[in-house]
């Protein structure tokens, strides 16, 4: 007869260990969370080494794929791009005239007081370890000034917010996750609401006033009411507005501005509203660059 090699003692030890773990988690939830958080710091550092190795392997595979395998049909794309260049040359001339006009308008506006955010750039090195949360892992952590609840963006718009940070890496909960909530604003009608993720992997603007005239195509931006994001960052465009009978609010589905499946480099907002003089300095730099031939 065949039997397992495990002894009765190890079985008893396993039962006791698991029972103690469960008892600890349920009887002292906050203390056990704190303990796990405390253990997570050094473990995160240990984990960062293989994580970086696997991440560079992943990038290598992606580059090989993009550089060789995915190049089929490039000739046709090249022809199309040449046609586009001719078209864009014409448009470019027109835009130079517009630039001169914009310069004048800029002087008219009191642009100096406009605030800007301080950011830290970070690279996406992985995806959430489970299938239950829509999250990505960044290669920047507390040692780079990244903390929980900070906002994460790309030049295109909002990505999500930091939910966990250890010394060398951090985890971002994407805007499409149902556990995420960001204060949003419909740009055209100025109606405010809360942007939440859906279980279908999109986002939804909730609590829009019933009398609001929002419509598909309207753009949603951050309202600046929550600390993580400054006002006016693009979140996405409305695709479908729902107004049910008896409901106190409307809601609308949002197509996120950022392609969250192809994230590579992101910016973590460490200070949403930096000093006004920093903005002014930046503006002066921009003006300086434009005056150069």
């Amino acid at each position: 007869m065949a039997i397992s090699r495990s002894t009765y003692g190890s079985r008893r030890l396993a039962i006791v260990l698991f029972a103690l773990l469960l008892a600890g988690l349920f009887l002292f939830p906050s203390q056990s969370q704190g303990l796990l958080q405390y253990i997570g710091g050094p473990l995160g550092q240990i984990l960062s080494l293989p994580l970086a190795a696997f991440s560079s392997l992943d990038h290598g595979i992606s580059e090989t794929w993009d550089g060789y395998v995915a190049l089929q049909g490039v000739r046709e794309e090249n022809r199309q791009l040449r046609r586009d260049i001719e078209l864009l040359k014409g448009q470019n001339n027109q835009l130079w005239d517009s630039v001169a006009a914009t310069q004048r308008y800029e002087n008219l506006l009191n642009f100096k007081q406009q605030s800007s955010s301080r950011t830290v750039s970070a690279q996406v090195i992985g995806r959430d370890a489970t299938n239950w949360y829509r999250g990505v892992i960044l290669n920047k952590g507390e040692s780079d000034g990244v903390r929980s609840e900070m906002g994460v963006v790309t030049p295109a718009g909002v990505v999500g917010r930091i939910v966990k940070a250890n010394s060398t890496s951090s985890v971002v909960l994407l805007v499409t996750d149902p556990n995420n909530a960001i204060a949003g604003l419909v740009q055209r009608t100025r109606d405010e609401g809360i942007v939440e993720g859906t279980s279908h992997g999109r986002a939804r603007l909730k609590y829009i006033p019933l009398l609001s005239r929002v419509q598909p195509g309207d753009r949603v931006v951050t309202s600046g009411l929550t600390g993580a994001f400054p006002r006016g960052l693009a979140i996405g465009g409305l695709t479908q507005v729902e107004k049910s009978e008896g409901d106190l609010f409307q809601s609308a589905e949002i197509e996120p501005e950022v392609d969250l499946s192809k994230l590579d480099e992101v910016l973590v907002i460490t200070a949403p509203y930096e000093e006004a003089d920093a903005a002014q300095k930046l503006l002066q730099e921009i003006h300086g660059d434009r005056k150069k031939p």
């Binding site: 190890s10 698991f18 997570g40 984990l47 489970t130 999250g135 892992i137 890496s169």
Partner: peptide, 29 residues
Amino acid sequence: GELDGLILGLILGCFQDILSAGDLWINVV
């Protein structure tokens, strides 16, 4: 056996919790 499975599970769960947006206990358990 149980002890080996439990120990490996706890280590894996702890690591996964560090790299996941969920609560810190869920993968450990």
